[in-house]
């Protein structure tokens, strides 16, 4: 069997307006469940996925921050890109538990990945 590959998943879209965050989640847990090493990074508008207090009941959709909060249970690591948080006038204080990374740490994650899959 070939050595385990590392896949970096970049999630760049707001929850709810596009299916991107939800579909990205399915790929994250799907690939992690198949034994691939997954680093999932929320960046740009994707950082809103990590914001606590979401209530999409008025949209008839499932809440996403709580499912992303459980990614570690599937063996995937979750990262939030702090420059994207600051640019949007948000604060990490209101976010689910995750690893906070800056541009340099994101570059390192890219360099350490075999493949990068973007959900934009």
């Amino acid at each position: 069997m070939s050595p385990q590959k590392t896949i970096l998943i970049l999630l760049r879209s707001c929850p709810y307006g596009m299916a991107t965050a939800a579909e990205g989640y399915r790929v994250i847990i799907g690939l992690a469940g198949m034994g691939l090493r997954i680093h999932a990074v929320l960046l740009e508008d994707g950082v809103l996925v990590a914001l606590k207090g979401q209530n999409p009941s008025g949209l008839g959709m499932h809440e996403l921050s709580q499912v992303f909060a459980k990614l570690t249970e599937f063996g995937a690591d979750l990262y939030v890109h702090t420059p994207s948080v600051t640019e949007r006038g948000l604060s990490e204080a209101g976010f689910i538990d995750s690893n906070l990374i800056d541009d340099e740490e994101l570059k390192d994650l890219i360099t350490s990945a075999d493949h990068v899959i973007t959900f934009n």
Binding site: L10, R12, L43, P83, D103, L106, K107, I110, N120
Partner: peptide, 12 residues
């Protein structure tokens, strides 16, 4: 769209 900003931010 601003997708290009990510490439500019990360490219080395």
């Amino acid at each position: 769209r601003t997708a290009w900003r990510l490439a500019l931010r990360l490219a080395q």
